[in-house]
């Protein structure tokens, strides 16, 4: 598989763009014409060839640019990557899982050579060739979790399992949908989800937690989640809200198709063998509405979902002020024809 990596930015001139292939493989998250919370978990064991579900950690045309954007965010605010002292072993688990997966899934891009605890890691797209001692932090330029997640797309929450709960005790979070690792670190599953409306009363979190606590080494799971973002911006953190907040009010009927993005998270869940922790990667995919509607089924369905979404969910997902304009735009791509079940383009 050959990937040509885009030269693009996620801030400033926002030159981010999707190729025709990237549009076609976009993980459109709606399998019907309406949306409500659900636990919607499925096994993360591959998927359609070419889809974002195929590899364990998907690498796409945005890889290099995303890693550059992460480095910028970290240089401005190092607290976007934190690990409480008891989470170092889990960090090695993360490094091992990602390195072995990527080296197997993308042998032309990544190589891992292991001689006992002496490891050599080659990352061709980023020009890295490092040799280090597994489980010895002093042999890496960063802690193990930070080292490997500076080279892997998506945010990462590393969860400690104890007291029948999951605790967000480490993470690399630079492309989040408006939540702060620095504030939420150390919280349990119910605490960090506290701001999500409705789901608690629906018992969603109780069920989800039971499911997650039982994830085993050989049964990783995944789900899709979504929100909306104006401009293809990865760093929509609460910390920098004053920078990107005004952009939310910059939409006009003329620029909406180009500036309004659907933001989809491919969340996956992995048992970490050495620490018994859980890795929770949150991989973000962005698509402009004008690209999205090039798939007719998606244009029709997305119009119906956004039009009918309950008020509080539209508020939580941060697009309530822009909803009328978005619905107006999307309605032009909905002829009322029925849509086929499932998420895939027809």
């Amino acid at each position: 598989m050959t990937i040509t990596f885009n030269k693009e930015s996620f801030r400033g001139d926002y030159s981010y763009h999707n190729s025709a292939t990237a549009i076609r493989r976009f993980p459109f998250p709606f399998d019907r014409d309406e949306y409500m919370y659900s636990v919607n978990m499925e096994p993360h064991k591959g998927g359609r060839p070419g889809s974002v579900f195929e590899a364990r950690f998907d690498v796409d045309e945005h890889y290099v640019a995303e890693m550059e954007d992460r480095a910028i965010t970290l240089s401005r605010d190092p607290m976007r990557c934190q690990s409480l002292p008891h989470m170092t072993l889990a960090g090695w688990d993360v490094l091992e899982l990602i390195m072995t997966s990527k080296a197997q899934d993308y042998p032309d891009l990544f190589e891992l050579h292991r001689d006992g605890n002496r490891w050599r890691w080659v990352n061709r797209p980023l020009g890295i060739d490092d040799t280090f001692t597994f489980l010895d932090e002093t042999t890496l330029p960063y802690g193990p979790m930070e080292y490997i997640t500076r080279q892997t797309q998506g945010d990462f929450a590393v969860l400690d399992q104890r007291e029948g709960n999951l605790w967000m005790d480490a993470g690399m979070v630079t492309s989040q949908a408006d939540w702060s690792l620095d504030f939420d670190i150390g919280m349990n599953f119910f605490e960090w989800h506290a701001p999500v409306p409705r789901a608690a009363e629906m018992g969603i979190f109780q069920r989800a937690l039971k499911f997650l606590l039982n994830i085993q080494q050989d049964t990783p799971a995944r789900r899709l989640n979504w929100t909306m973002t104006v401009n293809p911006r990865l760093d929509t953190s609460p910390e920098t809200y004053p920078e990107w907040g005004p952009e939310k009010r910059s939409l006009t009927p003329e620029n909406l198709g180009q500036k309004q993005y659907l933001r989809v998270e491919l969340q996956s869940f992995w048992r970490l063998p050495r620490s018994n922790g859980l890795l929770f990667p949150i991989r973000c995919y962005l698509i402009s509405l004008q690209d999205l509607v090039t798939v007719p089924k998606w244009g029709r369905r997305f119009h119906r979902v956004i039009r009918d979404l309950p008020e509080d969910l539209a508020t939580y997902k941060g697009f309530i002020v822009n909803r009328p304009m978005i619905v107006d735009y999307l309605s032009r791509f909905d002829d009322g024809a029925p849509t086929s079940p499932g998420i895939w383009p027809d």
Partner: peptide, 12 residues
């Protein structure tokens, strides 16, 4: 079966 841990150390 695969190893399963219901009695892990609390590393804190």
């Amino acid at each position: 079966g695969q190893p399963v841990n219901l009695f892990g150390l609390n590393l804190t």
